[in-house]
Design a protein around this nucleic acid. Structure first.
Lengths: 196, 196
DNA sequence: TCACATACATACAGTTTGTATGTTAAATTG
DNA sequence: CAATTTAACATACAAACTGTATGTATGTGA
């Protein structure tokens, strides 16, 4: 049984990120021990530092995975409608739903900005979910669907609102109901920007 | 020169929190060394652990100070108007302005949730700025000023939007202009909830 | 096939947090 | 007012953790 080096590498990276995702989301970045993670992955810390440089590098890779997953869910959910505005609402709800999930929440919303710094975190977001939000708002604006407003400012406000919504929902006893309430509020919020 | 123990205690706590606030906001929680902080305060780590229990306890005290300061600024700014709705807008702008400031931003918005956990952080917020926001929304609602909406959900959405706005503004080249744009967007956002 | 690169493992050093113990001065009490 | 206690620290130490330097084995290209 001899795997090529490339296969080996891919497998190691995947195993480590998967294990790390669990530890980071369960215990938080600071409390997640590199030693415990590599042991659970059947490796040593040598492998971690070889592939990711340091602990932060591993976290970065995990966050990238989370971001990509969520963005994909948002995109496919938004594609359910033909109407630009309805796409926006569907995408927003999909984002909140995905961000609430425990394998994502802490990594994406709590530790992400703290570990990588807000600017790095934001840049990653720009390449995933936030990009979708921004592009959608631009599309709507092009068709005159928005009141005159700074699109970047609006994008950030909405993004922040949704992030907080996810964290709020996560700790509510009835999450399903909380999601409905948050979505309703979000819809009204969006209405404020709609050109009549 | 003999100070009473109570005076000594107060002075030590104040000195430590002040130094810690600088270190936490400049380097972040994880990179702020307890040894460096107590040295700069002219003490040893014994004093820190005596008064605050651990590093997290010190951070908690610093964050409480930051929260209290900001809440006071929000409250006094909102008091400039008689109109409930205008008070809300003024308070929101004051909050963003205060949260942008570098002695506050990282501690309040980046490291706070990560270090204390979102629920503890949120609970502290509930006792300060967020309480003001929530009460103001309730007041407006009592007078029929709001569309039918879940006030808690709305409170969180707005709070999240403002937090993100502060982080966005902070890294813009022209912060003054960014604050104006964010405030304008926020006003539209609030308009979405206004009963006509 | 032979030199090299890659994917790790191992060993070690440096830092940092937290705790346990000691010390001094103020406060309390008999 | 003397004796005792207690609070505010300082000091010393243990444990954990990250990062780095080095070693090794295996695959790969010339």
């Amino acid at each position: 049984m001899k795997r090529s080096k490339e296969e080996q590498k891919k497998a190691t990276i995947r195993k480590l990120t998967e294990v790390a995702r669990v530890h980071f989301s369960a215990h938080g970045y600071a409390e997640a021990s590199t030693e415990e993670m590599v042991q659970e992955a059947g490796l040593t810390r040598g492998a971690l530092y070889h592939h990711f440089g340091n602990k932060e590098g591993l976290f970065h890779a995990v966050l990238a995975m989370v971001q990509a997953e969520i963005a994909q869910q948002v995109e496919s959910e938004a594609a359910q409608s033909e109407d630009l505005w309805e796409q926006l609402v569907l995408g927003c709800r999909a984002f909140v739903s995905a961000a609430v999930e425990s394998p994502n929440r802490r990594i994406l919303l709590i530790d992400g900005p703290s570990v990588l710094g807000w600017e790095s975190w934001r840049q990653m977001d720009q390449e995933h979910s936030m990009r979708l939000l921004h592009e959608q708002l631009l599309l709507i604006d092009e068709q005159g669907g928005l009141k005159p407003v700074s699109i970047p400012a609006l994008t950030h406000l909405l993004s922040g609102a949704m992030n907080e919504a996810a964290l709020w929902i996560a700790q509510m006893p009835d999450q399903q109901h909380a999601l409905i309430e948050a979505t309703a509020s979000l819809r009204l919020m969006l209405d404020g920007f709609k050109a009549q």
